[in-house]
Design a protein around this nucleic acid. Structure first.
Lengths: 252, 252
DNA sequence: TCTTCTTTTGTAAGATTTTAACATGATTTT
DNA sequence: AAAATCATGTTAAAATCTTACAAAAGAAGA
């Protein structure tokens, strides 16, 4: 009842960006302004909105506003990435352990992941901070030198973590893909890390928005047939899709 | 003149995340509140800040850690911590390597640290994200299980990092201090990590705001005489100060 | 330098929004 | 069913913000 209303307010704010108390009052004529205020206060505590004079605004809205969260990367193809992340989040079962990489898409995945009992390993600082908000998620960060452009860590030393850990699933993303060159990224240590991940994980899901297709980055870390599931957006070319499905790779 | 002040406000907000008008008034005592309001209005128009009730907050701040309650973050003893962090930041020389812990004060240190060529090791995720903004700072994060309440990592595995690394200086903070029980914190693994740090670092600076004095936490990781410099605020009791200076520990 | 125009700043009243405190009704627990 | 907890409504008081106007400070041109 209360929670329903609070959720509705949150959704409204995500859609509209910003609302005044008066507007909210119009949406919820059967409750008092004070109640709405209290709802907003609660959402603020949860970090989902920001109260401003006269009403409140969605955090998501602010994040989209002119600027770069970490790199200029995040600004582009945001909506696709969020959709992909939502798909991926639905594939994570409770009581599993999984690896998540440090990319932008992975950060959205971290946001979309429900607060369920899973153990996540990641080399992404932004991913870690998002996941740290969730009470039921166990979280381990791989240490190492920090790559400043994407806020991920990578270092040979990370291997020592992997020696004693296991995970069923790895959900990763790539900076570039072509059928010939496979999935590639810009950093060698990162590529090494992801290769190692491939060996450790029982299955591997790849998040790839269609803007990455046709691009080539210096270091290939996986080939087409190395993955089990490809999570992408609606602009993914049909003829490419066949190449995956022919190898029993699920494309979604 | 006006532009200078406006820029200064913007920078302040980027550092502090959020400021009330009163706090701004303290920073700019020679101009009226109305002028500051107008400055904030202008910055809002430029999309660089968001005005909230009582003051304003930096857009960058919102974009950074979106899941975190903004109100909580700027909670207790902020001003003291920032002053301590500023003192500490001045003590860091170029071309050194240092360890910084994962506490709140350490995060302010990270913000205040000039963009100079140093190598920083940290177990704090928030610290890491702040430092990643600085082009000249080399950064290594210690991996491990993430303690969600203070966004720091700690794990026995972190030892493997320490084996191959050296740093001249460790700047750390404690959750509690009494002369009898020394410096203590709430987590055992964290205490272990800090003990190890003590051995690795040539010298150790302790940041301790006076509110921590007289408190005791479960795990002691350093005694009074283990440190070289104590960085604290103006409320630090004079008689305690003597205990440090008698042992040639600099109190500042 | 003086005058004029524009910009910046200060003041204070008035409007708006928020908080705090208490009372009431609903829901859950024991 | 009583007690305890939670959600809600009402109101007055507090805090914050805006508006409007006037003074001061700069800038530009004669």
């Amino acid at each position: 009842m209360k929670r329903d209303r609070v959720e509705e307010i949150a959704e409204l704010l995500d859609k509209r960006g910003k609302l005044t108390l008066e507007q909210l009052d119009d949406y919820f004529p059967h409750v008092s302004q004070m109640t709405l205020r209290r709802d907003l206060y609660q959402l603020e505590q949860e970090g989902r909105i920001i109260r401003v004079r006269g009403g409140a605004m969605s955090v998501k809205e602010v994040q989209k506003v002119s600027g770069e969260p970490y790199t200029k990367k995040t600004a582009i193809h945001t909506d696709e990435k969020i959709k992909i992340a939502q798909k991926a989040a639905r594939l994570v079962d409770e009581n599993t352990s999984l690896f998540v990489d440090g990319g932008t898409t992975a950060m959205y995945l971290a946001k979309e992941l429900p607060d369920i009992n899973v153990h996540v390993f990641t080399n992404g600082l932004a991913v870690a901070i998002e996941l740290a908000q969730k009470k039921n998620v166990h979280l381990t960060v791989l240490g190492g030198q920090v790559l400043k452009d994407n806020l991920s860590t990578a270092s040979p030393v990370a291997k020592s973590y992997f020696d004693n850990t296991n995970f069923e699933l790895a959900i990763i993303s790539a900076s570039a893909f072509t059928p010939e060159n496979g999935f590639s990224c810009a950093s060698q240590v990162e590529a090494d890390l992801l290769k190692m991940t491939r060996k450790k994980a029982k299955s591997m899901y790849m998040m790839l928005d269609s803007s990455k297709i046709g691009k080539i980055m210096p270091y290939t870390f996986a080939r087409l047939e190395d993955i089990d599931v490809l999570i992408t957006d609606d602009n993914f070319p049909a003829e490419l899709k066949d190449k995956f499905t022919q190898r029993n790779i699920v494309v979604m």
